[in-house]
Design a protein around this nucleic acid. Structure first.
Length: 290
DNA sequence: TTTAAGGGTCGTCAAAGGTG
DNA sequence: CACCTTTGACGACCCTTAAA
């Protein structure tokens, strides 16, 4: 859309409120700025000169980037757009392991980034969360009925927590509705991770089945009794994750893996995910046809 | 008595923007 | 031109967390 401004309006609306004098003094510079994205002509309004801005045709790359920003629905500032795309693509395509260290490593390997340090990926993911692009899984409150009967027939009473104001019984825990993925974490002698490999869907299902079998038993044998010992919710959480990690690791060994690890699959806002999917497909096809 | 990954903080650095 | 000030990205370092 062609738009016409006088100097004051340019300063206010396009240059973030600089003084008109500054604009006039560095006119060449500011016109240069305008000409990056517009064909600039001049006109008149009363006694004022006007600046007529006619947006330039964008290059294919610019169009693609604009489309990407529109899908995200926010401005990414001076962040590296290719790295941002790579993070989202990693999550959507499910080929590499989408933990921050690994994303940084792969992005560096592809030359999208000059370092394999995690910091930047962390910042970018925090940005994606802040902007509602990566979202938290839904949680369902669960109340366990007391008492629980252990394998040996003993009753176990889980301590209830109540809301101090309403007296309402708070949920025993919250179940997170989220998919998990599994990967093998291979380390060298020094304990440094040398590669992370995602397992196939089939293997993941097999691990999950094995896990479900072993978990119920381990819970009965190792964990429920801890409630009776007065472990707090926090401590139980810790114990559970330890036992869980151990079982996953053991199963992994059976499958010939070094160190099997289970993580929550990051969730991308479904609407955005659908659009990104189309976008990446289209981009990849375009590059391929060329 | 773990351990991998995620989160917080802060210093550094570079670039941009504005002004004298 | 030269000098602020601001902004924001980056990454080192350290700490917390983990689930049905």
């Amino acid at each position: 859309m062609i738009q016409e401004y006088i100097a004051v309006e340019l300063c206010e609306q396009l240059f973030g409120g600089i003084k008109e004098a500054t604009f006039r003094r560095n006119k060449e510079y500011y016109l240069g700025e305008l000409e990056k994205e517009h064909n600039v002509r001049f006109g008149k309004r009363g006694r004022h000169i006007t600046y007529i801005l006619d947006p330039k045709e964008q290059t294919e790359q610019q169009k693609a980037d604009t489309e990407f920003f529109e899908i995200l629905g926010c401005d990414i500032g001076g962040k590296n757009i290719e790295l941002m795309k790579f993070i989202l693509k990693s999550i959507i395509e499910q080929k590499i392991v989408p933990v921050q260290d690994e994303i940084a490593l792969q992005a560096n390997r592809l030359g999208l980034w000059g370092t394999d340090s995690r910091g930047t990926v962390k910042n970018y993911m925090a940005f994606l969360k802040d902007n509602g692009i990566i979202v938290e899984p839904m949680e369902i409150p669960i109340w366990i009925e007391n008492p629980i009967i252990n394998r040996d027939g003993k009753e176990i009473w889980i301590k209830r927590k109540c809301d101090p104001d309403t007296g309402e019984i708070l949920p025993t825990f919250h179940k997170r509705i989220v998919k998990h993925y599994y990967f093998d974490c291979v380390k060298n002698e020094a304990g440094k991770v040398i590669r992370r490999e995602r397992v196939s869907d089939t293997t993941a299902r097999a691990i999950e089945m094995a896990f479900n079998n072993l978990w119920t038993e381990a819970e009965q044998r190792e964990l429920l009794s801890l409630y009776a010992l007065g472990y707090t919710a926090m401590e139980m959480k810790k114990e559970r994750s330890k036992v869980q990690a151990r079982i996953i690791r053991e199963i992994g060994r059976e499958f010939g893996m070094c160190d099997c690890i289970r993580k929550e699959e990051p969730i991308i806002n479904p609407t955005i995910k659908r659009q990104l999917n189309d976008y990446f497909n289209q981009q990849d096809n375009g590059a391929w046809v060329q």
